[in-house]
């Protein structure tokens, strides 16, 4: 006879911790969101880079008139708004994961994540306001404005 337990013997039931997790399924939803938003962001950002940096005269052509011309079209407003929100949530969640991985002290994590969420809030609110309150034809020298401002 050997002292080794029969490997086919049923395993004794494992003591179940009273709480498996403290946060429900939030981390799972975050994981799914990173993948879903990642695919959408690939399309949005590649389109953004193609139109702004590759087509026409690239970065040389970007000025106030260029931006105003784009945002005169609701499609680009929605495009940029979606890109702003998805990229900020995707990026903030990514940096949050990295902080959790590398910042070992509770205090350090708290400080870094507070800064991160503050940056998230400021950037998303500012960017959203700019897209919705943008005036393509402000008082300025006409040569700085898109052509449709002077045509009317």
């Amino acid at each position: 006879m050997t002292a080794i337990a029969d490997p086919k013997a049923p395993r004794p039931p494992r003591a179940r911790p009273s709480r498996l997790t403290t946060r429900g399924n939030t981390e799972l939803y975050g994981w799914v969101f990173m993948r879903a938003s990642g695919v959408v962001l690939l399309v949005l950002i590649f389109g953004h880079l193609f139109v702004n940096l590759w087509a026409g005269d690239g970065v040389k052509a970007i000025d106030f008139g260029f931006v105003a011309g784009k945002w005169a079209d609701p499609i680009w407003q929605v495009w940029d708004l979606l890109m702003l929100w998805l990229a900020m949530i995707h990026g903030t969640n990514g940096v949050r994961t990295i902080i959790n991985d590398y910042a070992e002290r509770d205090g350090t994590r708290l400080v870094l994540k507070s800064l991160l969420y503050l940056a998230f809030l400021v950037t998303v609110v500012l960017g959203t306001l700019v897209i919705f309150t943008f005036n393509p034809c402000p008082d300025a020298a006409p040569d700085l404005l898109p052509s449709f401002c002077t045509a009317r």
Partner: peptide
């Protein structure tokens, strides 16, 4: 996002 927000300040600053 910060640099693009300058379109809301003035065409010159942007």
């Amino acid at each position: 996002v910060l640099d693009t927000s300058l379109v809301r300040v003035s065409p010159e600053s942007y």
